[in-house]
């Protein structure tokens, strides 16, 4: 016990001596003195140990000082000088931001599209995804922004291509809407003929003509990819309707012929045979159908034939006159794409 106490005293003495040497010791000495005063008879040993923690405490305070700068770093906004076209812009930006974000801020100042910008720092082009601090950009760093003509051209071409696709899609959608309007008429005519009712031939011709016009509009659409598939789908649909109307026309002709034959009071035995023959003809060729129609008109007066022909001629001339206007736009579109 006595031996231990002399050692403790010696240690304390040694520490005092070492602390006296450096200039900052006065503060540390005061702390050590306070600790010694707090200690009792046995406490000096604990004081010794605590002194070391005190020393450790001193070290910890140093660590705290280190932490403060760390806390400050996320906060600061650096000031960057960006030069473009002879004009220097001062931009305040987070030091951990990317060059892409810098480009956006530059675009706000200069009007140059972000994708068209090339950012040069220390004579190197920087990727948009790189970060400012990683690249060494700091407060008051100087950067140069140059316009990239290749990127600009690429962007404009892409925009134009998308514009064309969008335009083609709209055209197909417009035709689809028109065909949707005509579909009920086709269904109505078909239903009437199935019931055995006679329908006005002019109505069938008119609807057929409208559908053919929509088909010509579809043919004029220049499209790629999905839009092309949609166009093809609509083409099939319109063709199906037109074929339905052709069948309606044939059935209607048969109905008219039947009523005509009744009027002329021909034998009952003949009609079925003729119908079968003419149906066979219709299956083979359209000219046969044409002939059937004309034979029908022979039975009736010539007036329906004349009016029908006139109507057809008028409608077709209308269609032909309507065709030229939509042509120029496709020319312009293809004109550009081929160049």
């Amino acid at each position: 016990m006595l031996g231990a106490s002399p050692k403790a005293k010696k240690g304390a003495t040694v520490k005092f001596g070492s602390m006296k040497n450096p200039p900052p010791p006065p503060v540390v000495g005061a702390a050590a003195g306070a600790a010694a005063a707090a200690a009792g008879g046995k406490v000096p040993a604990e004081e010794v140990w605590e002194v070391r923690p005190g020393g450790m405490l001193v070290q910890k305070r140093g660590g705290g000082a280190d932490e403060e700068p760390v806390n400050v770093k996320p906060v600061p906004t650096i000031r960057v000088k960006v030069k473009h076209a002879g004009i220097t812009h001062e931009i305040y930006i987070n030091s951990q931001a990317s060059f892409g974000e810098l480009k956006k801020m530059v675009a706000a100042r200069t009007g140059l599209h972000p994708d068209d910008q090339k950012v040069m720092y220390k004579d190197k082009e920087r990727d948009s995804k790189a970060f400012l601090d990683m690249a060494g950009v700091k407060d008051r760093s100087k950067l140069v922004v140059v316009e990239d003509p290749e990127a600009r051209a690429r962007r404009l071409i892409e925009e134009r291509r998308n514009g064309h696709l969008e335009k083609a899609a709209k055209a197909v959608a417009a035709v689809t809407a028109e065909v949707d309007k005509l579909a009920p008429k086709v269904a109505a005519l078909d239903a009437s003929v199935r019931k055995g009712e006679k329908v006005a031939e002019n109505d069938v011709v008119q609807v057929t003509e409208l559908l053919m016009n929509e088909l010509l509009k579809l043919d004029a659409v220049v499209a790629d990819g999905d839009v092309k598939a949609q166009r093809r789908l609509q083409v099939k649909r319109v063709q199906k309707y037109v074929e339905t109307l052709d069948a309606v026309m044939a059935k209607n002709a048969a109905i008219v012929r039947k009523s005509g034959e009744k009027l002329t009071s021909k034998q009952h035995h003949h009609p079925p045979a003729r119908q079968q023959q003419q149906q066979a003809h219709q299956h083979h060729q359209q000219p046969a159908a044409g002939q059937t129609r004309w034979e029908m008109f022979d039975l009736l007066s010539s007036l329906p034939s004349t009016s029908s022909a006139s109507s057809t001629t008028t409608v077709s001339s209308t269609a032909s006159s309507g065709a030229p206007p939509p042509l120029p736009p496709p020319a312009n579109r293809l004109d550009w794409m081929l160049f």
Binding site: M212, L215, L216, D219, A220, A323, L327, P328, P330, A331, L334, D335, L338
Partner: peptide, 17 residues
């Protein structure tokens, strides 16, 4: 008829390409 319309468009285009 559809083919004629397409040919007419092509004829116009061939004045430029």
């Amino acid at each position: 008829r559809r083919l004629r319309s397409a040919c007419e468009r092509a004829k116009r285009l061939l004045s430029f390409t």
